[in-house]
Design a protein around this nucleic acid. Structure first.
Lengths: 248, 248
DNA sequence: GATCCAAATTGGTATATACCAGTTTGGACA
DNA sequence: TGTCCAAACTGGTATATACCAATTTGGATC
């Protein structure tokens, strides 16, 4: 039985990563146009159709929007304000609070080991080293979500609590320090009942129902990066997913 | 201001509909392979890349699966049994019940008029004629979901209660009698508390939390067809959505 | 400085072609 | 009848090219 040979990465994936890093970098803001397909193809020495495939995937993921004759741009802020802390792509979380910017408070940060269920989701061995941390998200003074993240320690050597309180997004950190572009994922949404701590943090009563989102995100090549479990305030949060018209 | 001209339908959309009707027809069952891209292109007199784009979209929608060297097939039944009554595409509903096939019971069927909120979702005028019906879904004797559908009456002239109890799926009916292929949609998931009737039907207590899914489905061209509100049993049902690896 | 029109630009669609790496298939051979 | 290998077939990737419709841009003209 021969070793599984790592196929060389398809060109469109490299281009997809290039564009994703471009738009997540400091030079681009929501509403900005990216260079046209022809310009990108020219600059990268690739065919327009290959560039197009990379952009197609980013559009399908919600990272970009096409506007037939006026270019491709970063999605401008939406009317329904899809607040995006850690729900990237495919699902957006609508937080029914007037305005403001979401902010987080780090509740804890520690090393740990993978339980059987977490190991299965991350496709690693049970007992493997993990970094585990929990954050409380709020708009102004209103908490709407508790998120607990599990990341294989080997993927993020040197990750420290300060990294999560520096104001930089986790995605930006993963990309800039570890060269990981978070792209795809699987999500499950269900109902749970708050325990005492969760209820207190979300200003609910113990036993109240909440929306739970479980997310396994992966990099551009599909390798699992993070398992996230988030408990969402039942009256303040709604999940939305679209499909079809946004499709290329 | 000139009339908005209806652009001729792109070829890949016509092919997409052709393939969708093919696989939803009586000749195909889960696990079956569809004809290869080359064969389809040949039969339809189109280029393989155009056929490929149509199939790409069906794959992204979850209606088909690719298997690199062994063809493209209808997704075989999954381990986690994504029961599919009216949740098609993008989201699958996992019902945590041993086995069996879901069946429905028609609770009511009547003509009505669009409220402001329903009219907005279906992009029709307030007060427009609707067909409204409600069904209870169950596996064996265990109910897991109540679904209320709203369909513009002009889209389904002659629709009768018998049509919904004939065992045929609504999608099949829309396609075969009205020539409508349901393809895309927008979904919202949140928490609601059951009223007395809902609780009774789902064997819960009034006021218990449940998962609510609101779905606006549309045809291949993106025209809204149906607004569906479904109340799901909080312990039995879980929603899942994927994105990334399944993408073309 | 304002107006208007032609040219350039943009994404959207469609086709043709080529090669690759696995899987399946069919037939030759033992 | 069973085994094995080459050929055929599959989807995956990549390039080149062409045309369309709509918007944006730039410059000439008033």
């Amino acid at each position: 039985m021969p070793l599984k040979v790592l196929r060389t990465e398809p060109r469109y994936l490299a281009i997809q990563r290039y564009v994703q890093e471009l738009i997540e970098g400091p030079d681009y803001a929501p509403g900005d146009n990216i260079p046209s397909e022809r310009v990108l193809a020219d600059k990268l020495g690739a065919n327009r159709m290959t560039v197009r495939k990379a952009i197609d995937r980013l559009v399908a993921a919600g990272l970009l929007e096409r506007n037939s004759t006026s270019g491709t741009r970063l999605p401008p802020p939406k009317v329904t304000r899809p607040l995006n802390p850690r729900t990237s792509l495919g699902i957006s979380r609508l937080v029914q609070i007037s305005g403001g910017t979401p902010a987080s408070r780090l509740l804890y940060f520690e090393a740990g080991r993978a339980s059987a269920s977490v190991a299965a989701r991350l496709r690693i061995d049970e007992g493997a080293d993990l970094m585990i941390f929990r954050r409380l998200w709020m708009v102004d003074t209103t908490p709407f979500c508790i998120e607990t993240s599990h990341i294989p320690a080997v993927r993020v050597p040197g990750l420290a609590a300060e990294d999560l309180t520096s104001g930089r997004s986790l995605n930006a950190l993963l990309r800039e320090r570890y060269g990981i572009s978070v792209f795809s994922g699987e999500r499950e949404i269900g109902v749970v009942h708050c325990n005492e701590q969760e209820a207190k943090l979300l200003q609910l009563a113990p036993g109240d129902a909440a929306l739970v989102l479980r997310l396994v995100s992966a990099d551009t090549a599909g390798r699992p990066i993070e398992y996230l479990r988030s408990i969402n305030h039942p009256q303040l949060v709604l999940f939305r997913t679209e499909m079809g018209e946004a499709q290329p």
